[in-house]
């Protein structure tokens, strides 16, 4: 009997085949990796980092780059501040979200916020090590000599409308997020490249004020 290659089998069944990322192999013991992630993040009370966000527009052969400051404080406080080429502040504190642009401060409650909530949930999950418990995605872990790669495939209709896939790259030693890539259905994707990551720096509560 002929063996049907896995991707052809998936194609025949109409199931999207998500190829193994180049240069990575599957994490052999996912349970142990999850424990390592949780253990590592247990010691990180705060995280301060910068990231460069690059939106790659595949059909336009163009990109839009933004500079961003990222702060995280346990358990669930996140501050993302876009400083260039536009100003935009997003603060998540518990279940509340504050948004501030050049003109106005407001709480958001739109489809837009669903996206932000899901991206931030992924970020918080990565910071806390709870990414495998996120019900919106099916998570597969890969590794190589320098790091880990978590492939998040949307499991719900709402997420499938927004993303084709999210990839999270973690530094092998520190288990910090080094890159987060959001891939859209149309082929466009956004890279968030983290740098200057510091742990347990003092972060004032006012930075996460949402009222």
């Amino acid at each position: 009997m002929h063996k049907i290659p896995a991707f052809l089998f998936c194609l025949l069944l109409g199931i999207p085949a998500f190829a193994q990322p180049k240069g990575y192999s599957p994490v052999k013991n996912t349970q142990a990796f999850q424990q390592e992630l949780i253990q590592s993040n247990r010691t990180k009370q705060t995280i301060s980092s910068d990231f460069t966000q690059t939106k790659n527009l595949s059909l336009l052969e163009d990109r839009i780059v933004a500079k961003v400051k990222f702060l995280f404080k346990k358990e669930d406080r996140v501050r993302i501040e876009y400083t260039s080429p536009y100003y935009y502040l997003l603060v998540m504190n518990g279940g509340q979200i504050l948004v501030k642009d050049e003109q106005k401060t407001s709480r958001i409650n739109t489809g837009n916020s669903k996206l932000m909530q899901s991206v931030n949930r992924v970020m918080i999950d990565c910071m806390q090590g709870s990414v495998f418990q996120n019900p919106d995605f099916t998570v597969t872990a890969y590794e190589n000599n320098t790091g880990y790669l978590l492939q998040l495939v949307p499991a719900t209709a709402a997420m499938k409308n927004m993303f084709r896939q999210i990839e999270v790259q973690l530094d092998r030693r520190s288990l910090d997020v080094s890159r987060l890539t959001m891939k859209e259905a149309g082929g466009d994707y956004t890279d968030m490249d983290f740098r200057n990551t510091k742990h347990n720096v003092a972060l004032d509560e006012t930075l996460f004020k949402v009222k």
Binding site: Q53, L57, I64, T110, L115, E184, T190
Partner: peptide, 26 residues
């Protein structure tokens, strides 16, 4: 609703308008 609007004239003489939110979602 806020975001970024990119207007671009392509080599094939088409004009494109792409609107995305701050986090890059089109």
């Amino acid at each position: 609703l806020s975001g970024v609007l990119l207007l671009k004239r392509m080599p094939d003489h088409t004009t494109r308008a792409v609107f995305q939110n701050e986090m890059g979602f089109s």
